[in-house]
Design a protein around this nucleic acid. Structure first.
Length: 106
DNA sequence: GAGATGACGGGCT
DNA sequence: AAGCCCGCCATCT
């Protein structure tokens, strides 16, 4: 069924990520049962329409970096910083600090 | 149906 | 540390 399509599941999951927290592509894939489906998750993000209500900026790669092209990176960084995410001098996020483990914040 | 693409991840050089 | 290669998954041509 279309509501069970891969991207729909990805979108629902990403929507549940609270502001100020981030998840990795691999983590999302894992939650969907595709341990190595990180690329498919990236595909879903790339296909997102601009006006989507999905907080795509909260999905980063396993190194805590932004995998987009410079334009997208700039936008994503700005959005995340607005949410309180902190970047180090190399423009990376500390996943141990800002990574979301799936539990709701206190 | 086959080949190519992509906002990934892990391993090796 | 940085870069290169291979493997996985879903979609497109």
């Amino acid at each position: 069924m279309s509501r069970d399509s891969f991207f729909h599941q990805v979108y629902e999951l990403v929507r549940s990520v609270p502001p100020g927290k981030v998840v990795t592509y691999g983590q999302v894939a894992r939650w969907l049962g595709k341990a190595n489906g990180a690329r498919a998750v990236g595909w879903a993000m790339r296909a997102l329409p601009k006006g989507s209500d999905v907080p795509w900026q909260r999905v980063v790669n396993s190194r805590g970096e932004l995998s987009l092209t410079s334009q997208g990176k700039d936008l994503q960084r700005a959005l995340l910083e607005s949410e309180g995410i902190q970047f180090d001098d190399r423009g990376r996020i500390d996943l141990h600090e800002s990574g979301w483990d799936g539990e709701l914040p206190s």
